[in-house]
Structures are given as C-alpha cells and as structure tokens.
C-alpha cells in the first residue's frame, strides 16, 4: 500500500492519496496519468493489467488500486 501511495504521489503532487477518493472520477488523475500508473504498477508488482481491469472503480482510490493489485497477484 505504501508503495502505491508513493507511485501516486510521484504522478501528482499536492494530493493526499492516503485519504483521497474518486481520484479518477473527479479527474484528479487524467488518462495520461493512468497510463503512467499502469506502467509503474506492472513494473513494481510484476503483474499484467488487462482491459478488464481498466474501470474507474479500480483506480478511484489507493485502496481500490491495492485491492486490484492483490487480485492480479493471486490470479
């Protein structure tokens, strides 16, 4: 989880990602940030994010991202 906060903070400064919700729905992260996020998550956690996971609900908070990463690691 800390690593996810670190990645998110490197993409966008000035946002408290530990508490932030709806970060995609409210356009705190845009599509290009998400593309960078995917690359960083795949490198960091050795996972492959496919289109089935490209849904706002999987990226709307650090917790949601962490849950997606765990699911992909178990799959």
């Amino acid at each position: 989880m800390d690593k996810i906060i670190e990645i998110l903070s490197s993409l966008k400064t000035g946002v408290d990602f530990e508490t932030a919700e709806n970060i995609v729905t409210n356009k705190i992260l845009d599509s290009i940030d998400i593309a960078s996020l995917i690359t960083a998550l795949e490198d960091e956690f050795d996972i492959e994010i496919s289109m089935e996971y490209m849904d706002n609900k999987n990226f709307d908070s650090a917790q949601a991202i962490w849950e997606m990463v765990q699911e992909l690691q178990e799959a």
């Binding site: 599509s31 593309a35 995917i38 289109m51």
Partner: peptide, 9 residues
C-alpha cells in the same frame, strides 16, 4: 476508453 487505453495496455 476504446482506443487510448487498449493501446496503452
């Protein structure tokens, strides 16, 4: 959703 993201991943 249907071009940029599929290209990215």
């Amino acid at each position: 959703d249907y071009v940029y993201y599929p290209l990215t991943v």
